[in-house]
Structure formats: C-alpha cells, structure tokens
Write a protein that binds this DNA or RNA. Structure first.
Lengths: 221, 221
DNA sequence: ACAATAGTGTCTGTAAGACACTATTAG
DNA sequence: CTAATAGTGTCTTACAGACACTATTGT
C-alpha cells in the first residue's frame, strides 16, 4: 500500500478592529508562486511540530506576539488538488483575534505586511475563501461566546466592546441596551474598579474579560 | 528549502440515534497499527482527491450511502507528531449525521463494523478525542441549526424529532412546548400533509426538513 | 372503556428593543 | 454654558417553561 505524499502548511486569518472596521493581516509574497500577490500569512509545518504550535509560531513571526493575548483557534483545512501549483499541499487554517496593534513587521518570506479592510479580494491560492470563512466564523462566534473581548486590550470600556460588535456586525447598536446586556450577562466582563481619564464625556468604568466560555443568553445579531 | 513530508487521512465521526441514544459507527482494525482495536472509520486521501470527496468516499464504503441523505461537514484536523506510529500523519476529521440505518458492512481494511453507544473509550490513535469533539459539535449545532432533521428519515413526526433532541442532549423535553417551538420556528420543518398509521395513540402529521440553515430563535438546551 | 400519543390554549417570568432620563466629564 | 459619552429606569412585546385541556387513534 502506498500513501500519497503531501506537504502541510498553516495559514492564519488574523483579525483586528481598527478605525471602527474589521481588518485582516495580509503579507505580500516574496517568493514564487504568486510572487508579489497579497496572501494570508502562513508557512510549512515543521517536521516535529504540532499544528497549533506551528500556528502560534507563525503568528509570533508576523506580529511579534507570543503571550496569551487575543485568541487562536483552528478554522478548517483546505486541500483541493491544484490549490498550490507546487504540488499536493493541505493547509490547516487558524483564526486569530487580536486587539489593535502597532503596524506589523514583514516576516522572512514576505516583502511587506499590512492590515487591510476585510473586503479585499484577489488573494493568492484559495485565500479569498479562507478569509471569508474566517470572517463568517468570527461574526457567528460573537453571538454566543465572549470572544469580542479578544479584540480588546486587557482593560476596556463597555463602549469599546460595543465598538467591536458594531465593527464586526456592521451596524449601530443601542448603547443603553448594550450596556445593560454586557454588564448583566454572567461571566462576560468583570469590573476592575478603575475608570478612563481625559476622554470627552463622562469617565467610563474599565472592565476585563470574565470567565464564561459561552454567553447565556447570547447577544442577538 | 525543504518541506517535511506528511501523509493525510480522513476520519469519520458518523453519528446516528438508535434506541433513544446517540451511537457512533466504529470499525475494528484489520491491520497494523492498533490491529484489533476499535477505531473511527477512515483512510488515506488519494493522490488526486479533494478532502471532502475522500470523506464522502469513505462514508460510502462504510455505510453503503452515496446520496445526499444526512449531513457531512468538516470537524477539524489533528496532527500531533507521534499520533500515528507509522510516521507523520495529519488526519482531517469529518462529522456525519445519519438516520438510523441497517447494520453496517465491514469495509476493506476493517475486520468488523458496528454502531456503538458514544460512551466507549480506548479507541485507536487519538480517536477518543476526535469522537468527543464530534459529539460536542453535534450537541452544540442542534441548538442553532436545523441539523436534528439529518438524524431523521425524509418524512418524520414531531415526536421523532423530539426523540433526537432527547437522545443527543440526554434529558426529557416537554412534548407540548417542543411541538409548538418546532412547528412555529420558520423554515425548520414543513408539513407534507400525510400522517402516520397503525401506531398507538393519535396519528401524527408527517413533516420534512425546511429550508432554513439557522434556527431563529434557537432551541435552548 | 382505557392507555397512549398528538396537538392547542393559557399563564407567568424573563429578556430584548425602544427610548426618556440622569450623571459626569472636556472644552 | 454646550457637547459628548456613561449609565439607569420604564414600557411594550416576544418567547420559554409549566401545565390544563382537548383530539384521535389501538387494544
């Protein structure tokens, strides 16, 4: 019995909220194939490396992060024959949600890296589809998990959290109802006792993420 | 630049409801490694085959199904180094939900195949974990999708649909409230106009699955 | 008649959405 | 002061859960 031979890569859909809109981290390819095209960051899984470890390594190489900030989960695998002209390559896509960060640094294989609004098309390989799947997953998970906090820094205001929902779902949300909902849903957010200073308007209390893994009841879209 | 070499398999978590309990399709391995151990059905992805095609092919080989009955979706990928003693093997797991079927036939590589209650442990490879992930996915998806209908034959009663929820969630559900909920949630089920005959009790109207892909509002667990 | 299951109606508590209103800051 | 944002209270409507009640069959 012969086993067909594959290469395995990880690709990352790294999302953040910037200027009130959802953005994705893209790199400009510095080598063939698709030289010069924009693509999701990613790379080959090493010989003795777990898939999740590979994803975290690539995320660190692209963003400089290595701690437990943000959120990382497996999105799905893509393995159509012909999706990579170099041969039979299966990619395991991961979805990362991060707070807004300073501009990314280009990795080893990339000519450039930048945050792009999620509407951009024409990415290399099948990355248009992977990106669309990642965005849909993120939109869906904001409903029934506290993952919106992964887009926020360690301490955040309810207004900032609302801004995440408005950016990801693409519409305005009533601030009063949202405030009541977020602060009364058990385990969603915990007050830190501190408040903002120097902003226009009444100072806002600061919160950190709570311990719940599911929102009950969910936020309705 | 060298790419580490991998083999890629698909493994199937095939679930059905039998005798009021969730069951999974298991095969007894007919070759090394783990000769004689129970495992999820699966096999190597062929050289020119899409991942989903491979999953459907394996499903057909194990169950004799090939039509659009039931439901098949990707569950996730598992690629720890050392998960397979033969070398570096990444498996893409798929989740299938099927109506209750006649007993399965052993495939080419399997010594035997059977429906087992989902509690069984000690499966080959990392299949205990894959099975647990599949069951959790199924439990979760019954809440906000109409996937419970995938466990039912093309025409079914509301009582049968309720039996699916009771089996998957493991507790009794009020028949009256469930009936109202299932029949009024738009797109969940469509009446066919026919009814059951020869059963004890009042005849039940027969329904088929509706066109919705998400339940709004969801069924609460 | 009786057991069994299907299906409807009614009540109550909880939560979502709309929105008036108060609170506290910067400028 | 005004503009701006934070936070609270109130009302209406919708739905989940509990459960009384009716409907229609097999035995």
């Amino acid at each position: 019995m012969s086993y067909p031979v594959f290469a395995v890569t990880v690709d990352l859909v790294v999302l953040t909220v910037r200027d009130g809109a959802l953005h994705v981290l893209l790199v400009q390819r510095g080598c063939e194939p698709y030289l010069g095209r924009w693509a999701l960051p990613g790379g080959f899984v090493h010989a003795d490396e777990d898939l999740t470890t590979a994803a975290r390594r690539e995320l660190g190489e692209e963003t400089g992060l290595d701690g437990p900030a943000g959120h990382l989960e497996q999105l799905g695998s893509y393995g159509d024959p012909g999706r990579d002209p170099r041969g039979r390559v299966v990619t395991v896509a991961y979805l990362a949600l991060l707070p807004d960060l300073p501009s990314p640094t280009a990795g080893t294989d990339a000519a450039a890296a930048e945050w792009a609004p999620i509407g951009r098309r024409g990415l290399a390989f099948d990355h248009d589809r992977i990106l669309a799947d990642g965005v849909e997953r993120a939109r869906s998970k904001l409903e029934y998990t506290p993952l919106a906090t992964a887009f926020c820094p360690p301490e955040f205001t309810i207004g900032a959290l609302r801004g995440v929902y408005e950016a990801v779902w693409g519409g305005p949300i009533d601030p009063r109802n949202f405030h009541r909902k977020a602060t009364t849903t058990p385990g969603f957010v915990e007050p830190t006792g501190r408040s903002t200073e120097g902003e226009p308007g009444r100072p806002a209390r600061l919160y950190q993420r709570g311990e719940a893994t599911r929102l009950n009841p969910p936020m309705s879209r």
